[in-house]
Computed example of a mutant assay.
Amino acid sequence: MSQDMAVFKGGVAVITGAGSGIGEGLARLAAKQGMRVVLADVAMERTERVAQEIRAGGTDVLVVHTDVAEPEALDRLAAITHETFGDVTLLVNNAGIETLGYVWELPAALWEKTLNININGVIHGVRAFAPGMLASGKRAWIANTSSIGGLGIMPIQTSYVLSKHAVLSFSECLYLEMQMKRAPIHVSAILPGPVATRIFEDSKTAEDPMNANHGQIMHNMLASEGISGDEAAERILPQIAAGKFWVSTHPEVTREFANNRASHLSNLADPALPAELLAGMGLG
């Protein structure tokens, strides 16, 4: 255990979207740091498998079926967690879905589902847990999973990208609010780069063939270039422990995205895609 990570020993970690990908990796790593872990997800079969593997290492694990799109489900998660394990040390609002399609083709119900999970799931996760974390007076950490997509723009993935922009700005404001309260709660925004998760495998896609093609391009890119969820967690958790706001799996990529976004805004440039991406989408 690194010196930074030692701050988590004996604490309680709550992770949404813990049944696969980055959430699964963070749950495993938190357990290795001596934390009791709460795994929240809707995919119970996958999540129970993760829990069994973690329990085999001697860690106390609680699995709670949680649809983060429902605020009352997050209230229930907070209540069960406190009743079972007490004060929360680390909250990672990680659950999210990918939705592909032109903005006018996605059904209203799919828009609502995507935004409720990706944005409101983070907001209500904080709303449900922060009061107890503040009341404890103990040092604690809140980390919200945005994306390097929160520093860029991308057609077809509009619902996902705008949700990650929202999570980033929410996290920045939350950071300032904790400063105003002089609270011992560190806030981090996680901006993963290429990580080989199930996000495109599980994505909801509108009928236009362009959507499926774009999804396949992105899936193949993650499969060939993406790091594993476990490796992502190994990069993410030490940065959270150190109190960093900007948490990246690929720092150079994140900085490139940030610089590009800053240049785009400072020049009031028209939206545009790189030529190589256009070619990959058959538009070059």
Rank of each mutant, 00 (worst) to 15 (best):
N213A: 15
L222V: 10
K164Q: 06
H186R: 10
R55L: 11
T254K: 09
L77P: 05
I217M: 04
L278D: 13
F245T: 08
A223G: 04
F170K: 09
M221G: 02
M210D: 12
N260D: 13
Q179E: 11
L100M: 11
E177Y: 10
I148V: 15
Y160H: 13
A232H: 04
W246G: 08
G57F: 06
P131W: 08
G23V: 08
R49C: 05
A30S: 13
I97K: 08
A128Q: 11
A27P: 05
I148T: 13
L176W: 03
N260L: 14
L278H: 05
M133K: 07
S263R: 13
E112I: 11
I54Y: 06
R261T: 13
V92C: 11
A128N: 10
H165M: 09
L26W: 03
R127E: 09
V103T: 05
G17Q: 12
I217R: 06
D67S: 05
T84D: 10
G23I: 03
I117R: 07
M44C: 05
A233D: 03
A140H: 00
S159C: 13
F129Q: 02
E70H: 03
S2V: 01
I240P: 01
A79M: 12
G229A: 08
T47D: 12
S248T: 15
Q239A: 13
D87C: 05
R55H: 11
D202G: 04
A95M: 11
G101E: 09
K138C: 05
G137A: 02
A6W: 00
A30C: 13
E252L: 14
E256H: 02
V92G: 03
G121C: 12
D230Q: 12
S263D: 14
E201T: 13
P271F: 11
S203Y: 06
G150I: 07
P192I: 00
R76L: 12
N220K: 09
A18I: 09
K181N: 06
S171T: 13
G215D: 10
E98T: 10
